[in-house]
Amino acid sequence: MFKHRVTASATTAAPTEVVFALIANGATWPDWCSSVDAFSLEREGAGDREGPGAIRRFAFRGRTTRAEIVEVQPPRLLRYRLLSGLPFFGYEGRGTVSAGRIRWDLAFHVKVPGRGRHWHHYMEDFLNEFVQELSAHAERQATGQQPPARPAGHIVHPATDKGADQGGRRA
């Protein structure tokens, strides 16, 4: 079975530490990634809350994914594997930050025969948007600029957004 590989990268003027802090803290993802609606931590990692062994849950594009953190090397590397939520197996992700560059690599097999091209393009589009939004948010954060407002009705995690109601929706 064919293993799909998707890579996206972006340049950034933000310091490596600022970019990595956003990657390492899943609770920030709904703030800067327009496709991520909510985050929760299912299980804390060994040693660090979002370190190796942690299981993160992300709601995005009508799906909920679960991913286990495999390796963290601040401020440069985060590796994880998908546990559930997408029709893939053998899914591995790797985010790296170095000297003005963000790179994200995915490798996965598609469970449903004949759907590989669809899912490859879907993940390619998502990943390109993801790294561009990460770069832009990190740059705004590094310069003290306020991020743009989220769309009305956008779902966020109530614990990370003080403006959210009990259902996680923004007023």
Rank of each mutant, 00 (worst) to 15 (best):
A138Q: 06
Y80T: 03
R49I: 15
A46P: 00
R103G: 08
T64A: 04
A38D: 11
H120E: 05
R57Q: 13
P151F: 07
L127M: 13
E139T: 02
V156Y: 03
F39D: 09
G114E: 05
G90I: 06
W119I: 04
E129S: 14
G26S: 14
P30M: 06
G85I: 10
D125S: 09
S135W: 00
G144V: 05
G53H: 10
A149G: 01
L83T: 04
V18D: 05
Q73W: 05
R81S: 08
G114C: 00
R94W: 02
F58Y: 15
A142D: 00
Q73K: 14
A21Y: 05
H118Q: 02
L83S: 03
A149D: 00
F88N: 05
V36M: 09
R57W: 09
T16W: 06
N128K: 12
S84T: 08
T96V: 14
A159T: 07
R76S: 14
R94N: 10
E44M: 12
T65H: 11
D125N: 15
G95R: 10
A159R: 14
P15S: 10
R103N: 10
H120Q: 12
W29I: 13
F20M: 05
S35C: 14
W104F: 14
H118T: 03
T28W: 13
I23D: 05
S98G: 13
A99E: 12
P87R: 09
R63E: 11
Y122F: 11
F130R: 03
Y80N: 08
F60E: 01
L22N: 04
D31G: 12
Q146D: 03
A27T: 07
A46I: 13
D37E: 15
G53R: 11
R61H: 10
A24F: 01
P15H: 05
E139Y: 02
P75Y: 01
R94D: 09
L134N: 06
T65C: 08
V70A: 08
G26A: 14
T65S: 12
G85V: 11
E68F: 04
A142Y: 07
G45D: 08
R150D: 01
L86H: 01
D31S: 15
R117S: 07
L77W: 06
A27K: 14
S34A: 15
P75V: 04
Y122E: 06
P113K: 03
H120M: 04
N25S: 15
W104P: 00
S98T: 13
E133I: 03
Q146F: 04
R43F: 06
R101Y: 03
M123I: 11
F20Q: 05
W29V: 13
A27M: 13
E92C: 08
G114S: 00
G62W: 12
G116T: 00
G144L: 12
T160H: 14
L22K: 06
D48A: 15
G85A: 10
W119P: 02
S40V: 07
